[in-house]
Design a protein around this nucleic acid. Structure first.
Lengths: 334, 334
DNA sequence: CTGAAAGCGCTTACAG
DNA sequence: CTGAAAGCGCTTACAG
């Protein structure tokens, strides 16, 4: 495998010159540049990134940090949508993605993640830092690694959506349809900060309409389809007269719909069900889900662009996306 | 940030000793080992992986290569299931995952991928090498990077499933239920080798039952839900008397079910629909899908274990998984 | 059982 | 505009 030295010899210049030509430093004779480039071409030279990383401290690797919680980031279409945006942007800029899914405990994060942070391997981080018990940004604070946060733990650079507003709109929608007997399908409040903010939005909308939020029946799932079905089952057994379910994500909403159908009732005629995220399947589900579009596909891309801005010494403004209520057929008036 | 030299000084030994103690070389006084370990502890020393990569040629990074085709690997729950298995196994062994989604053309693969291969960054590769026009393993052959292939391009080490058998069982199932007017929802044959093998299985089962496979109507989608619906629409307009659809993956099957419902007919009473992959949603879909379980979750894990075997100098046997027909409610007799 | 020293393949002030 | 040389932080024969 050809190295810089080989290229230098063949081009009749020093390794320093080759290095500089390759990194596009100006002030070189056109002829030198061409000699170098031809040697590179002829030898099929490709730089050894490990060496470059050591010498220059630049690796062309960015870490995507998605904490490992509940049933796994790999099960969540929403998370994947974000990853897709990150990947597209990184690939375009010649960067590689290192996928990190640290395991969190109240005491901190696993050793493996800590090693990665200090490995000298990564130029920057995009994090989905959303787990209340611990922020994965914590061990990074003492380092100088640029970070953009897609989660809601405090961070200098971030791309958020307005979860509070999303929750508010969702509840408002059901209330406007006349629903009052509304079951909440939530998650434990130590699971996800975004979910907590959505809950606050739900509460605010209820209170604005004079509805006692705390009196509404609530069940806690884990974002999975099956947990949504289980929650709906539980709630309907205790409160058979419920006319609607608000679910904190689309997958639980899909589970709730299935449970309702399984017990011989109809969505939305008997019971309205609304979700959150607008995953691709939401639009083609039966019935299509009323949900909140939180712009996952573009959020990953924007976070990545922001990270590159930071890497280039710019100071990008934080971004908070608005969210959009998407009314489909899973909800109707009482 | 503490480096090896700092640890050595503090422990009163040479850097060579520290390095060897840390890599678990035997033959060290217990007291030396302890002095070193304490110094490591006190300084919070973490090795710089870039330096280690350069010096030892070991990076603790393995690349997961999922060629970028059709609507993207990130949309495919099946692919993600595989990734989940890979991630779990790598994390457990202290390895990092570098995600690579090369863009393929008949002429080859993008420059970015080529650079990664030669970067000196990766210890091994797990590939889903399934695109007929080009094998991502091609540029690796001249290198000495260990590879395990989850796709069906030729490779020394691989973990497969028997797509042919899956196709065969699926068609056999419908034929046994009495179906003869069967629409095939496939993909273009330059898209995916696994899909092609499934098609061969379908054909063989048809022929074994005396059915002329080439006479069956066929439409080509792109694995997405919406394409499944579009194909079903097309086929039913041309052949209104079809009693069943075989789809080459679950998502297209879900699209087909939705189209059937949309035009006021029922699954399975009017039309049976079967899929392939057994993605998590298949079991909770309405109706639950008859499909082929190709063991995605364990396949990623097994491929990763195989890769570590190769890295450790072993010669693991290739693995071909059997596949299982899962009969649910989306298919019934004519 | 332990250490001195060379080397992995780059980049980067510095000097000219 | 170009090059000599030091250095990035490790590992690894080799010698003792």
């Amino acid at each position: 495998m050809a190295k810089l030295e080989d290229v230098a010899k063949r081009a009749g210049v020093s390794t320093a010159t080759v290095s500089k030509v390759l990194s596009n430093t100006p002030y070189f004779t056109e002829s030198t540049r061409q000699r170098v480039m031809r040697a590179v071409e002829e030898l099929g030279y490709v730089p050894n990134l490990a060496a470059r990383a050591l010498a220059a401290g630049k690796t062309s690797i960015i870490a995507v940090v998605f904490p490992h919680v509940y049933d796994g980031v790999f099960q969540d279409p929403h998370t994947l949508h974000i990853l897709q945006g990150i990947e597209a942007e990184c690939t375009q800029r010649g960067y590689n993605i290192l996928l990190s899914t640290p395991r969190l405990t109240p005491d901190g994060v696993d050793e493996h993640y800590l090693r990665l942070i200090q490995s000298g391997y990564i130029d920057g981080i995009i994090a989905l830092d959303n787990v209340p018990i611990y922020s994965v940004l914590e061990p990074i604070r003492s380092k100088s690694i640029p970070v953009v946060n897609l989660g809601t733990h405090p961070s200098e650079h971030y791309v958020h959506t307005n979860d509070y507003s999303g929750g508010f709109q969702l509840m408002q929608h059901l209330l406007e349809l006349g629903h009052r007997a509304i079951g909440i399908i939530s998650v434990p409040n130590d699971l996800n900060l975004s979910a907590n903010h959505r809950m606050e939005g739900l509460r605010a909308a209820a209170q604005a309409a004079g509805v006692d939020f705390d009196a509404l029946p609530i069940a806690e799932g884990d974002f999975s389809i099956t947990s949504g079905a289980a929650c709906a089952d539980l709630l309907l057994q205790q409160f058979p007269t419920l006319t609607a379910f608000v679910c904190l994500n689309d997958r639980m909403a899909m589970g709730a719909v299935q449970l309702v159908h399984r017990i011989g009732r109809r969505v939305p005629d008997d019971i309205s069900v609304v979700g959150y995220d607008d995953i691709p399947m939401a639009a083609v589900f039966d019935p299509p889900l009323t949900t909140i579009d939180a712009h996952a596909p573009t959020r990953g891309r924007d976070a990545t662009r922001m990270l590159f801005d930071v890497l280039n010494g710019k100071f990008p403004d934080p971004v908070v996306y608005p969210v959009d209520l998407i009314v489909r057929e899973s909800s109707t008036h009482t």
